[in-house]
Amino acid sequence: MESQNNNNNNQEKFRDPNLDKRTVISPDGQQIEVDPLQDYFEQARPQVHKPASKVIEKFLNWARAESLWVLGFGTGCGSIEIPPLTTPRFDAYRFGVAMRPTPRQSSVFIISGYLSVKTLKRAIRSYEQMQNPKYVIGLGSCTINGGMYWDSYNTINRLDYYMPVDNYVAGCMPRPEAILAAFESLKKRIKEGRADGANKYAEHFDWYKANQKKVIKDWNMPDYNW
């Protein structure tokens, strides 16, 4: 399995000392070897979760679509466009959109602008910690094709190579109205049952991982972040 092949050429150079194997002495004097990656983190691959029967799924998708819980994670400059959503002028709450502070409880991940490699690592981790079903909105040109950072040495060009994206919002930067429109279009997608990014991610897990690992040279985290 490719994700097992965690060693690129620079493994030694980018060693994360926190993930080194180490030996500790237990209270009764035994030596215990700790392999942080194995012992601290669950690394199992994500599973594809079959939708429920059609009628029920339709109802559930409606419920999901009408209560979108957004992870408050600002990745790039677009994150400044998100807070206005909760203000009286735009008031996303009336569309069933709410902000959540933790990935565990969120269903929508807005990648708000360019993603440097460093941020990508955190974004992947947060994305993987969200529960199925989960949706991604790519905000701004940068997530589509790199935007004004298209030739930067450190910024990714296409978000959909690293995680399944449901909606892109073009613009540099898109205004909050555009984001609201994105929510509406996402809702439509969900209700139609087409927003199945989490399962897509699980199905094409190896491909996504390979892409991720191609740009993240110092891969120092579990292959899947539960």
């Binding site: 790199g146 990714i156 296409r158």
Partner: peptide, 11 residues
């Protein structure tokens, strides 16, 4: 960037 970051064709 072109080698690494999967440039989107058509740009």
């Amino acid at each position: 960037s072109e080698d690494t970051y999967f440039p989107r064709p058509g740009r």
